[in-house]
Amino acid sequence: MPERHVLITGATRGIGEALAAHCLAAGDLVVGCGRSAPAINHDRYTHFEVDVTDAKSVDGVFRELKRRFKRLDVLINNAGIGGMNAIALTPVDAARRIVETNFLAAFNFTREALRMMRSSPAGRIVNISTVAVPMRLEGEAVYAASKSAIETFTRIAAREVAPFGVTCNAVGPCPIKTKLTAAVPADKIQALIDRQAVRRWGAAQDVVNVVEFFLRPESGMVTGQVIYLGGAG
Protein backbone atom coordinates (compact mmCIF):
# COMPACT_ATOMS: atom_id res chain seq x y z
CA MET A 1 0.00 0.00 0.00
CA PRO A 2 1.35 3.49 -0.80
CA GLU A 3 2.00 5.94 2.03
CA ARG A 4 -1.29 6.96 3.61
CA HIS A 5 -2.51 10.51 3.22
CA VAL A 6 -3.95 11.43 6.61
CA LEU A 7 -5.96 14.51 7.60
CA ILE A 8 -6.37 15.25 11.30
CA THR A 9 -8.42 18.11 12.71
CA GLY A 10 -7.42 19.59 16.05
CA ALA A 11 -3.85 18.44 15.47
CA THR A 12 -2.18 21.23 17.41
CA ARG A 13 -2.15 19.54 20.80
CA GLY A 14 -3.36 16.66 22.93
CA ILE A 15 -4.88 13.62 21.23
CA GLY A 16 -4.62 15.18 17.77
CA GLU A 17 -0.93 15.86 18.18
CA ALA A 18 -0.35 12.29 19.41
CA LEU A 19 -2.27 10.90 16.43
CA ALA A 20 -0.24 13.03 14.04
CA ALA A 21 3.03 11.93 15.64
CA HIS A 22 1.95 8.29 15.43
CA CYS A 23 1.03 8.52 11.75
CA LEU A 24 4.28 10.30 10.92
CA ALA A 25 6.21 7.57 12.70
CA ALA A 26 4.31 5.03 10.59
CA GLY A 27 5.51 6.76 7.43
CA ASP A 28 2.26 8.55 6.57
CA LEU A 29 1.92 11.93 4.95
CA VAL A 30 -0.01 13.98 7.50
CA VAL A 31 -2.03 17.16 7.15
CA GLY A 32 -3.15 18.80 10.36
CA CYS A 33 -5.66 21.55 11.04
CA GLY A 34 -5.83 23.68 14.13
CA ARG A 35 -6.57 27.17 15.36
CA SER A 36 -2.97 27.79 16.34
CA ALA A 37 0.52 27.06 15.07
CA PRO A 38 1.61 23.43 14.99
CA ALA A 39 3.74 21.77 17.64
CA ILE A 40 5.02 19.32 15.04
CA ASN A 41 7.85 20.08 12.67
CA HIS A 42 8.33 17.26 10.17
CA ASP A 43 8.98 17.10 6.44
CA ARG A 44 5.88 14.93 5.92
CA TYR A 45 3.66 17.21 8.00
CA THR A 46 1.62 20.09 6.59
CA HIS A 47 -0.37 22.36 8.85
CA PHE A 48 -3.34 24.58 8.10
CA GLU A 49 -4.09 27.20 10.71
CA VAL A 50 -7.88 27.36 10.44
CA ASP A 51 -11.03 27.42 12.50
CA VAL A 52 -12.73 24.13 11.58
CA THR A 53 -16.15 25.74 11.94
CA ASP A 54 -15.37 28.29 9.23
CA ALA A 55 -16.80 26.62 6.11
CA LYS A 56 -14.99 28.96 3.72
CA SER A 57 -11.62 28.24 5.32
CA VAL A 58 -12.32 24.51 5.25
CA ASP A 59 -13.28 24.78 1.59
CA GLY A 60 -9.88 26.40 1.00
CA VAL A 61 -8.11 23.60 2.85
CA PHE A 62 -9.70 20.97 0.63
CA ARG A 63 -8.92 22.90 -2.54
CA GLU A 64 -5.29 22.94 -1.52
CA LEU A 65 -5.38 19.26 -0.57
CA LYS A 66 -6.84 18.33 -3.95
CA ARG A 67 -4.19 20.38 -5.69
CA ARG A 68 -1.32 18.88 -3.72
CA PHE A 69 -2.31 15.30 -2.95
CA LYS A 70 -5.30 14.28 -5.13
CA ARG A 71 -6.09 11.37 -2.81
CA LEU A 72 -7.05 11.18 0.87
CA ASP A 73 -6.93 7.89 2.77
CA VAL A 74 -7.72 8.86 6.35
CA LEU A 75 -9.79 11.57 8.01
CA ILE A 76 -9.69 11.86 11.79
CA ASN A 77 -12.29 14.31 13.06
CA ASN A 78 -10.57 15.07 16.34
CA ALA A 79 -11.22 18.79 16.83
CA GLY A 80 -13.50 19.31 19.77
CA ILE A 81 -14.32 21.66 22.59
CA GLY A 82 -15.89 21.02 25.96
CA GLY A 83 -17.86 23.11 28.36
CA MET A 84 -19.14 21.84 31.66
CA ASN A 85 -22.20 23.75 32.73
CA ALA A 86 -25.75 23.19 33.87
CA ILE A 87 -28.34 23.42 31.12
CA ALA A 88 -30.08 26.26 32.97
CA LEU A 89 -26.87 28.28 33.03
CA THR A 90 -25.58 27.65 29.50
CA PRO A 91 -25.86 30.56 27.05
CA VAL A 92 -27.24 29.60 23.65
CA ASP A 93 -24.12 30.92 21.94
CA ALA A 94 -21.92 28.63 24.05
CA ALA A 95 -24.08 25.64 23.15
CA ARG A 96 -23.96 26.61 19.48
CA ARG A 97 -20.14 26.82 19.52
CA ILE A 98 -19.91 23.32 20.98
CA VAL A 99 -22.31 21.82 18.44
CA GLU A 100 -20.65 23.65 15.54
CA THR A 101 -17.18 22.46 16.53
CA ASN A 102 -17.95 18.95 17.70
CA PHE A 103 -20.57 17.98 15.15
CA LEU A 104 -21.02 20.35 12.21
CA ALA A 105 -17.30 20.67 11.53
CA ALA A 106 -16.94 16.89 11.50
CA PHE A 107 -19.89 16.65 9.12
CA ASN A 108 -18.35 19.22 6.78
CA PHE A 109 -14.90 17.60 6.81
CA THR A 110 -16.48 14.20 6.15
CA ARG A 111 -18.54 15.54 3.26
CA GLU A 112 -15.49 17.07 1.63
CA ALA A 113 -13.11 14.22 2.45
CA LEU A 114 -15.36 11.58 0.94
CA ARG A 115 -14.80 13.13 -2.48
CA MET A 116 -11.05 12.61 -2.11
CA MET A 117 -11.37 9.15 -0.58
CA ARG A 118 -13.00 7.47 -3.53
CA SER A 119 -9.59 6.86 -5.07
CA SER A 120 -8.18 5.44 -1.84
CA PRO A 121 -7.66 1.68 -1.63
CA ALA A 122 -8.87 1.71 1.98
CA GLY A 123 -10.52 4.97 3.02
CA ARG A 124 -10.98 5.48 6.74
CA ILE A 125 -12.96 8.04 8.72
CA VAL A 126 -12.55 8.11 12.48
CA ASN A 127 -14.54 10.37 14.77
CA ILE A 128 -13.87 11.18 18.39
CA SER A 129 -16.73 10.74 20.86
CA THR A 130 -16.52 10.54 24.65
CA VAL A 131 -17.50 8.32 27.56
CA ALA A 132 -19.70 11.25 28.63
CA VAL A 133 -22.28 9.93 26.12
CA PRO A 134 -23.01 6.56 27.81
CA MET A 135 -22.39 7.96 31.30
CA ARG A 136 -24.97 10.74 30.94
CA LEU A 137 -23.16 13.06 33.31
CA GLU A 138 -24.83 16.09 34.87
CA GLY A 139 -23.24 19.27 33.56
CA GLU A 140 -22.22 17.66 30.28
CA ALA A 141 -25.58 17.85 28.49
CA VAL A 142 -24.54 19.98 25.53
CA TYR A 143 -21.09 18.46 25.16
CA ALA A 144 -22.40 14.88 25.40
CA ALA A 145 -25.33 15.68 23.08
CA SER A 146 -22.93 17.01 20.46
CA LYS A 147 -20.95 13.76 20.74
CA SER A 148 -24.16 11.69 20.62
CA ALA A 149 -24.75 13.39 17.30
CA ILE A 150 -21.28 12.29 16.19
CA GLU A 151 -22.03 8.71 17.18
CA THR A 152 -25.29 8.57 15.22
CA PHE A 153 -23.57 10.30 12.32
CA THR A 154 -20.80 7.69 12.46
CA ARG A 155 -23.24 4.79 12.30
CA ILE A 156 -25.21 6.21 9.39
CA ALA A 157 -22.13 7.45 7.54
CA ALA A 158 -20.75 3.91 7.76
CA ARG A 159 -23.64 2.76 5.57
CA GLU A 160 -23.40 5.67 3.14
CA VAL A 161 -19.64 5.46 2.58
CA ALA A 162 -19.35 1.67 2.45
CA PRO A 163 -20.04 1.57 -1.32
CA PHE A 164 -16.86 3.64 -1.76
CA GLY A 165 -14.76 1.17 0.25
CA VAL A 166 -14.58 3.61 3.15
CA THR A 167 -15.19 2.73 6.80
CA CYS A 168 -16.41 5.12 9.50
CA ASN A 169 -15.91 4.46 13.21
CA ALA A 170 -15.56 6.36 16.46
CA VAL A 171 -13.58 6.10 19.64
CA GLY A 172 -14.87 7.43 22.96
CA PRO A 173 -11.98 8.33 25.22
CA CYS A 174 -12.23 8.24 28.99
CA PRO A 175 -10.67 11.22 30.81
CA ILE A 176 -7.23 12.02 29.40
CA LYS A 177 -5.06 14.84 30.67
CA THR A 178 -5.58 17.41 27.93
CA LYS A 179 -6.54 21.07 27.78
CA LEU A 180 -10.18 19.98 27.50
CA THR A 181 -10.23 18.05 30.78
CA ALA A 182 -8.06 20.62 32.59
CA ALA A 183 -11.13 22.82 32.95
CA VAL A 184 -13.21 20.11 34.65
CA PRO A 185 -13.17 20.01 38.49
CA ALA A 186 -10.98 17.19 39.86
CA ASP A 187 -13.79 15.62 41.91
CA LYS A 188 -16.00 15.41 38.82
CA ILE A 189 -13.25 13.67 36.87
CA GLN A 190 -12.60 11.27 39.74
CA ALA A 191 -16.29 10.42 40.02
CA LEU A 192 -16.30 9.62 36.34
CA ILE A 193 -13.17 7.46 36.57
CA ASP A 194 -14.71 5.59 39.52
CA ARG A 195 -17.56 4.51 37.23
CA GLN A 196 -15.19 2.98 34.68
CA ALA A 197 -14.24 -0.69 34.64
CA VAL A 198 -10.60 0.34 34.43
CA ARG A 199 -10.35 3.01 37.14
CA ARG A 200 -7.53 5.22 35.95
CA TRP A 201 -6.85 8.11 33.60
CA GLY A 202 -6.41 7.21 29.98
CA ALA A 203 -3.53 8.36 27.85
CA ALA A 204 -3.43 9.73 24.33
CA GLN A 205 -1.71 6.49 23.30
CA ASP A 206 -4.84 4.55 24.32
CA VAL A 207 -6.78 6.52 21.71
CA VAL A 208 -3.99 6.08 19.16
CA ASN A 209 -4.17 2.32 19.68
CA VAL A 210 -7.89 2.14 18.86
CA VAL A 211 -7.56 4.53 15.93
CA GLU A 212 -4.72 2.48 14.46
CA PHE A 213 -6.93 -0.60 14.72
CA PHE A 214 -9.61 1.19 12.67
CA LEU A 215 -7.01 2.31 10.12
CA ARG A 216 -5.48 -1.09 9.46
CA PRO A 217 -6.19 -2.50 5.97
CA GLU A 218 -7.43 -5.66 7.70
CA SER A 219 -10.19 -3.63 9.41
CA GLY A 220 -12.24 -3.22 6.24
CA MET A 221 -15.15 -5.10 7.84
CA VAL A 222 -15.08 -2.92 10.96
CA THR A 223 -17.43 0.00 10.46
CA GLY A 224 -20.18 1.89 12.27
CA GLN A 225 -18.59 1.05 15.62
CA VAL A 226 -17.99 3.16 18.71
CA ILE A 227 -15.32 1.90 21.11
CA TYR A 228 -15.16 3.41 24.58
CA LEU A 229 -11.96 3.39 26.59
CA GLY A 230 -11.93 2.22 30.17
CA GLY A 231 -14.99 0.00 29.94
CA ALA A 232 -17.59 2.77 30.03
CA GLY A 233 -20.98 2.29 28.50
Partner: peptide, 25 residues
Protein backbone atom coordinates in the same frame (compact mmCIF):
# COMPACT_ATOMS: atom_id res chain seq x y z
CA UNK B 1 -29.92 7.19 -3.48
CA UNK B 2 -26.42 5.75 -3.04
CA UNK B 3 -26.13 5.35 -6.80
CA UNK B 4 -27.09 9.00 -7.17
CA UNK B 5 -24.30 10.01 -4.78
CA UNK B 6 -21.72 8.05 -6.76
CA UNK B 7 -22.97 9.50 -10.04
CA UNK B 8 -22.86 13.07 -8.75
CA UNK B 9 -19.33 12.63 -7.40
CA UNK B 10 -18.27 11.30 -10.82
CA UNK B 11 -19.88 14.34 -12.40
CA UNK B 12 -17.96 16.62 -10.00
CA UNK B 13 -14.74 14.87 -11.07
CA UNK B 14 -15.65 15.30 -14.74
CA UNK B 15 -16.43 18.98 -14.25
CA UNK B 16 -13.16 19.49 -12.38
CA UNK B 17 -11.33 17.96 -15.33
CA UNK B 18 -12.68 20.76 -17.55
CA UNK B 19 -11.79 23.42 -14.99
CA UNK B 20 -15.17 23.72 -13.30
CA UNK B 21 -15.02 23.23 -9.53
CA UNK B 22 -18.49 22.65 -8.07
CA UNK B 23 -19.81 20.82 -5.05
CA UNK B 24 -23.17 19.30 -5.84
CA UNK B 25 -25.06 19.56 -2.59
Amino acid sequence: SLGLVALLLDIEDGLRAIGCEVLLS
